[in-house]
Lab assay of single mutants.
Amino acid sequence: KKVIATKVLGTVKWFNVRNGYGFINRNDTKEDVFVHQTAIKKNNPRKYLRSVGDGETVEFDVVEGEKGAEAANVTGPGGVPVQGSKYAADR
């Protein structure tokens, strides 16, 4: 997939743990970017499923997906693991 931007910061608008996807609002352009659970590179080690939490600040790359921009290599700011959704089960 073609990389559009790297190391972008954004805020998770919403993320559905059961369906495994959601949207991140970019801090720079204010665009909403699709995020799939497979794009989460550093999950919270205490969580079973990969997820990001609503309102969480994340860092990610933006790539060209089939339906427009989507997030890739999602981590917390500075490459730390994401916090994850409060609806995702703990280990």
Rank of each mutant, 00 (worst) to 15 (best):
residue 1 K to A: 05
residue 1 K to G: 05
residue 1 K to Q: 04
residue 2 K to A: 05
residue 2 K to R: 07
residue 2 K to S: 06
residue 3 V to M: 09
residue 4 I to R: 06
residue 5 A to R: 14
residue 5 A to Y: 15
residue 5 A to C: 15
residue 5 A to P: 05
residue 5 A to K: 15
residue 5 A to I: 15
residue 6 T to P: 12
residue 6 T to R: 10
residue 6 T to F: 15
residue 7 K to P: 03
residue 7 K to W: 02
residue 7 K to Q: 14
residue 8 V to T: 07
residue 8 V to K: 06
residue 8 V to P: 01
residue 9 L to S: 10
residue 9 L to Q: 13
residue 9 L to K: 15
residue 10 G to M: 00
residue 10 G to N: 01
residue 11 T to F: 08
residue 11 T to A: 07
residue 11 T to K: 12
residue 12 V to I: 07
residue 12 V to F: 04
residue 12 V to Y: 01
residue 12 V to S: 01
residue 12 V to N: 00
residue 13 K to H: 08
residue 13 K to M: 07
residue 13 K to A: 09
residue 14 W to M: 03
residue 14 W to N: 03
residue 15 F to K: 01
residue 15 F to T: 01
residue 15 F to H: 01
residue 16 N to D: 04
residue 16 N to A: 03
residue 16 N to R: 03
residue 17 V to K: 07
residue 17 V to G: 06
residue 17 V to L: 09
residue 17 V to D: 04
residue 18 R to K: 14
residue 18 R to A: 13
residue 18 R to L: 11
residue 18 R to T: 11
residue 18 R to H: 11
residue 18 R to M: 14
residue 19 N to F: 15
residue 19 N to Y: 14
residue 19 N to H: 14
residue 20 G to F: 02
residue 20 G to L: 02
residue 20 G to Y: 01
residue 20 G to M: 04
residue 20 G to D: 02
residue 21 Y to Q: 02
residue 21 Y to H: 04
residue 21 Y to F: 13
residue 21 Y to K: 02
residue 22 G to M: 01
residue 22 G to V: 00
residue 22 G to N: 01
residue 22 G to K: 01
residue 23 F to C: 03
residue 23 F to A: 02
residue 23 F to N: 02
residue 24 I to T: 00
residue 24 I to R: 00
residue 24 I to E: 01
residue 24 I to N: 00
residue 25 N to A: 12
residue 25 N to E: 14
residue 25 N to T: 11
residue 26 R to W: 06
residue 26 R to I: 08
residue 27 N to Y: 13
residue 27 N to R: 10
residue 28 D to L: 02
residue 28 D to I: 02
residue 28 D to G: 03
residue 28 D to Q: 02
residue 28 D to M: 01
residue 28 D to K: 02
residue 29 T to N: 15
residue 29 T to R: 04
residue 30 K to E: 12
residue 30 K to Y: 12
residue 30 K to T: 11
residue 30 K to Q: 14
residue 31 E to W: 03
residue 31 E to I: 08
residue 32 D to P: 05
residue 32 D to C: 05
residue 32 D to I: 04
residue 32 D to A: 07
residue 32 D to N: 05
residue 32 D to G: 02
residue 33 V to E: 01
residue 33 V to N: 01
residue 34 F to C: 02
residue 34 F to E: 02
residue 34 F to W: 11
residue 34 F to M: 03
residue 34 F to Q: 02
residue 34 F to H: 02
residue 34 F to D: 01
residue 35 V to D: 01
residue 35 V to P: 01
residue 35 V to R: 00
residue 35 V to S: 01
residue 35 V to E: 00
residue 35 V to H: 01
residue 35 V to M: 10
residue 35 V to W: 03
residue 36 H to W: 03
residue 36 H to A: 04
residue 36 H to R: 05
residue 36 H to D: 03
residue 36 H to S: 05
residue 37 Q to Y: 12
residue 37 Q to L: 13
residue 37 Q to R: 13
residue 37 Q to A: 11
residue 38 T to D: 05
residue 38 T to H: 13
residue 38 T to P: 00
residue 38 T to C: 09
residue 39 A to Q: 11
residue 39 A to P: 00
residue 40 I to Q: 01
residue 40 I to S: 00
residue 40 I to Y: 01
residue 40 I to P: 00
residue 41 K to Y: 14
residue 41 K to V: 14
residue 41 K to W: 10
residue 41 K to D: 05
residue 42 K to F: 10
residue 42 K to D: 05
residue 42 K to G: 09
residue 42 K to R: 11
residue 42 K to I: 13
residue 43 N to A: 11
residue 43 N to H: 12
residue 43 N to Q: 11
residue 43 N to K: 14
residue 43 N to F: 12
residue 44 N to K: 08
residue 44 N to H: 10
residue 45 P to D: 11
residue 45 P to L: 13
residue 45 P to A: 13
residue 46 R to E: 12
residue 46 R to L: 13
residue 46 R to W: 10
residue 46 R to H: 13
residue 46 R to K: 12
residue 47 K to W: 06
residue 47 K to T: 08
residue 48 Y to M: 11
residue 48 Y to L: 12
residue 48 Y to E: 13
residue 49 L to T: 10
residue 49 L to R: 07
residue 50 R to F: 08
residue 50 R to A: 08
residue 50 R to C: 10
residue 51 S to W: 05
residue 51 S to Y: 06
residue 51 S to V: 05
residue 51 S to A: 06
residue 51 S to M: 05
residue 51 S to D: 05
residue 51 S to P: 05
residue 51 S to T: 11
residue 52 V to N: 02
residue 52 V to H: 02
residue 52 V to G: 02
residue 52 V to F: 07
residue 53 G to F: 06
residue 53 G to A: 11
residue 53 G to W: 06
residue 54 D to S: 14
residue 54 D to H: 12
residue 54 D to C: 15
residue 54 D to P: 09
residue 55 G to K: 13
residue 55 G to N: 14
residue 55 G to S: 09
residue 55 G to A: 09
residue 56 E to H: 03
residue 56 E to Y: 03
residue 56 E to K: 03
residue 56 E to D: 06
residue 57 T to M: 15
residue 57 T to E: 15
residue 57 T to D: 15
residue 57 T to Y: 14
residue 57 T to C: 12
residue 58 V to F: 01
residue 58 V to G: 00
residue 58 V to D: 00
residue 59 E to R: 07
residue 60 F to M: 12
residue 60 F to G: 00
residue 61 D to P: 00
residue 61 D to E: 07
residue 61 D to I: 04
residue 62 V to L: 10
residue 62 V to G: 00
residue 62 V to I: 12
residue 62 V to F: 02
residue 63 V to I: 15
residue 63 V to R: 07
residue 63 V to W: 08
residue 63 V to L: 13
residue 63 V to T: 08
residue 64 E to V: 11
residue 64 E to N: 11
residue 65 G to F: 04
residue 65 G to S: 13
residue 65 G to D: 09
residue 65 G to M: 07
residue 65 G to Y: 06
residue 66 E to Q: 14
residue 66 E to F: 14
residue 66 E to I: 12
residue 66 E to M: 13
residue 66 E to N: 13
residue 67 K to F: 06
residue 67 K to T: 07
residue 67 K to M: 09
residue 67 K to A: 08
residue 68 G to I: 03
residue 68 G to E: 03
residue 68 G to T: 07
residue 68 G to N: 06
residue 68 G to R: 06
residue 68 G to S: 08
residue 69 A to C: 13
residue 69 A to I: 14
residue 69 A to V: 15
residue 69 A to M: 15
residue 70 E to N: 09
residue 70 E to Y: 14
residue 70 E to P: 00
residue 70 E to F: 13
residue 70 E to C: 13
residue 70 E to R: 10
residue 71 A to I: 01
residue 71 A to F: 00
residue 71 A to W: 00
residue 71 A to C: 12
residue 71 A to E: 00
residue 71 A to Q: 00
residue 71 A to R: 00
residue 72 A to G: 09
residue 72 A to R: 11
residue 72 A to H: 15
residue 72 A to C: 09
residue 72 A to Q: 15
residue 72 A to L: 10
residue 73 N to R: 09
residue 73 N to G: 09
residue 73 N to M: 07
residue 73 N to Q: 08
residue 73 N to F: 07
residue 73 N to L: 04
residue 73 N to V: 04
residue 74 V to E: 01
residue 74 V to M: 02
residue 74 V to C: 07
residue 75 T to A: 09
residue 75 T to H: 06
residue 75 T to Q: 13
residue 76 G to Y: 08
residue 76 G to W: 06
residue 76 G to Q: 06
residue 77 P to W: 07
residue 77 P to C: 07
residue 77 P to Q: 08
residue 77 P to A: 10
residue 77 P to H: 06
residue 77 P to E: 13
residue 77 P to V: 15
residue 78 G to N: 14
residue 78 G to C: 11
residue 78 G to P: 04
residue 78 G to R: 10
residue 78 G to T: 10
residue 78 G to V: 07
residue 79 G to M: 06
residue 79 G to R: 07
residue 79 G to P: 04
residue 81 P to V: 09
residue 81 P to E: 14
residue 81 P to A: 11
residue 81 P to I: 07
residue 81 P to Q: 12
residue 82 V to F: 05
residue 83 Q to I: 09
residue 83 Q to D: 09
residue 84 G to C: 05
residue 84 G to Y: 05
residue 84 G to V: 05
residue 84 G to N: 04
residue 84 G to L: 05
residue 85 S to G: 07
residue 85 S to F: 05
residue 85 S to N: 13
residue 85 S to I: 06
residue 85 S to V: 07
residue 86 K to C: 09
residue 86 K to D: 12
residue 86 K to A: 12
residue 86 K to P: 09
residue 86 K to M: 11
residue 86 K to Q: 13
residue 87 Y to L: 09
residue 87 Y to R: 11
residue 87 Y to T: 08
residue 87 Y to N: 09
residue 87 Y to C: 08
residue 87 Y to M: 08
residue 88 A to H: 06
residue 88 A to M: 07
residue 89 A to E: 14
residue 90 D to G: 10
residue 90 D to T: 10
residue 90 D to K: 14
residue 90 D to E: 13
residue 91 R to Q: 14
residue 91 R to H: 08
residue 91 R to L: 12
residue 91 R to K: 10
residue 91 R to Y: 09
